[in-house]
């Protein structure tokens, strides 16, 4: 048994898991509140990355360069604002008119929105791959660990953990969180007690989009390249992670993503990377057979 290799793979798996988790958190939160699988989440992630690329391009052209975190923060803030606007508009155009339609309609609308955004970016930007600058600087204290976890990986891990905690606090202990939970339990009843349901749902989408944009900026600066199609694969993997952990459950999304990332990495490391996706989705099938609601999901009785 080669323990060093095992440890390297474990680190790789955790990092990969945290990448999936960062995208899955926004996915699962939107589902948790309005039971809509927002397929366009991956596209908001992609839009966030594109906005950050454009901002860094402008900053570089205007002569502003800084090896520290300021470019990253500036690009991320503007990407977040843009993505929030996209999320808000998306909900207003694609989902709100279908609020009372059968559940399949918003789902199809979500797929349509996803295809629209992907093609929109492809047309107004480019179908080519673009290089994405390394916005996260190399921290010196990470140097000895660079074989296992790089600086970007560390930032992604920390941001994922912080996001998970912040979301849980938001939903459990704040006023808007209470309103979200009420909306989730019974929309009509929530309205009756004076909750502005439309506003709550808009807020949900804005928060989800903000998370997607943060994920987009961090992950693009790790992979070093973006194009208009990156949202698709990211969305699928995040969706899988969310379902694995129990969709709608915030810690579940992180757990599901970790399980997915580690399973893929070990499968690729010990068997063959050609079957990476087979391990990922095979595991999904297995877990759904044994625990249909996901790892941390609660089995909810369907009201008939």
């Amino acid at each position: 048994m080669d323990f060093e290799y095992l440890f390297e793979l474990l680190c790789g798996g955790v990092v990969k898991g945290s990448i999936y988790a960062l995208i899955a958190l926004g996915y699962t939160m939107v589902y948790g509140i309005i039971q809509l699988i927002n397929f366009a989440h991956g596209e908001i992630y992609m839009v966030g990355a594109f906005v950050a690329l454009i901002i860094t391009g402008i900053l570089t052209l205007s002569g502003y360069s800084d090896s520290g975190l300021s470019v990253l923060v500036l690009a991320a803030v503007i990407a977040v604002i843009y993505a929030a606007a996209y999320g808000y508009t998306l909900e207003k155009i694609a989902y709100r008119p279908l609020r009372n339609a059968p559940r399949l309609s918003p789902l199809i609308s979500a797929i349509g929105a996803s295809i629209f955004l992907m093609n929109y970016v492809q047309l107004v930007q480019t179908p080519d791959f673009l290089p994405f600058p390394e916005l996260v600087p190399e921290f010196e204290f990470m140097e000895p660990l660079s074989r296992f976890v790089s600086s970007v990986d560390m930032v992604i891990l920390v941001v994922t953990a912080l996001t998970m905690v912040a979301l849980t606090v938001l939903i459990k202990y704040t006023k808007i969180g209470k309103a979200m939970r009420a909306t989730q339990q019974d929309m009509v009843m929530a309205r009756l007690v004076g909750i502005n349901v439309d506003r709550v749902i808009s807020a949900t989408f804005i928060i989800g989009s903000v998370l997607a944009a943060i994920a987009g900026v961090l992950i693009a600066s790790r992979t070093g390249q973006i194009n208009s199609a990156i949202g698709f694969m990211a969305g699928i993997k995040a969706f899988t992670a969310a379902v694995l952990g129990g969709i709608g459950n915030i810690p579940g999304a992180v757990l599901g993503a970790m399980v997915l990332g580690i399973a893929e990495t070990f499968g690729a490391g010990y068997i063959s990377s050609a079957y990476e996706d087979v391990f990922a989705f095979g595991l999904l099938v297995l877990i759904l057979i044994l625990r249909p609601a996901g790892l941390l999901g609660k089995a909810v009785k369907q009201k008939v």
Partner: peptide, 20 residues
């Protein structure tokens, strides 16, 4: 001798294997 997943976000496993 292996195939990798095109479009994947991370290839660290395959790279660790290369090193091993």
């Amino acid at each position: 001798y292996e195939g990798i997943q095109p479009g994947a976000m991370d290839y660290s496993a395959v790279i660790q294997k290369l090193n091993k």
